[in-house]
């Protein structure tokens, strides 16, 4: 978070992981995670900041809505949010970006390079 706030950029300051490595997801622990998905999969995005005292949340997930339309929801009884979306149809490779709210900064910060949803046969 300090890195992102100090440089106004997420480049080199954000790491993505998913739970689908066994099915072929790649680039775990990098900015360019490629998540293997198929139609009907339910995707959930959450965020944790490296400095536990710093606030970070997803502001928007920018993706082709023909394939997935993530929505913001909150955990019951809290204001902690997560984003959830179902993969509408099989994909080959779909890039997407995530905008984050960070600290008390008014404007969200967008990932510097794309993440991807990748089809099983891609």
């Amino acid at each position: 978070m300090v890195g992102a706030l100090a440089t106004d950029s997420l480049s080199g300051q954000v790491y993505f992981m998913d739970t689908n490595k066994a099915n072929g997801s790649t680039n775990q622990g990098t900015e360019n995670l490629k998540t293997v998905v198929e139609a009907g999969d339910r995707l959930v995005w959450t965020v944790i900041s490296l400095e536990c005292e710093a606030y970070a949340a997803i502001d928007e997930i920018v993706i082709d809505e023909d394939y997935c339309k993530p929505e913001k929801k909150t955990y019951e009884g809290t204001d902690v949010s997560y984003w959830i979306g179902t993969v509408k149809k099989d994909v080959k490779i779909i890039p997407y970006n995530i905008k984050f709210k960070a600290g008390t900064r008014a404007e969200p910060i967008t990932t510097a390079s794309s993440l991807y949803l990748v089809g099983k046969d891609a």
């Binding site: 739970t19 959450t46 944790i48 536990c52 955990y75 019951e76 009884g77 809290t78 902690v80 997560y82």
Partner: peptide
């Protein structure tokens, strides 16, 4: 040192979240 799970509930949730939800 702080351990987290990739597929776990976020650590930012209140400590009582699991208990509250179960009770409710």
């Amino acid at each position: 040192w702080l351990p987290y799970g990739v597929g776990s509930l976020p650590p930012t949730l209140p400590k009582s979240f699991l208990a509250d939800k179960s009770k409710n």
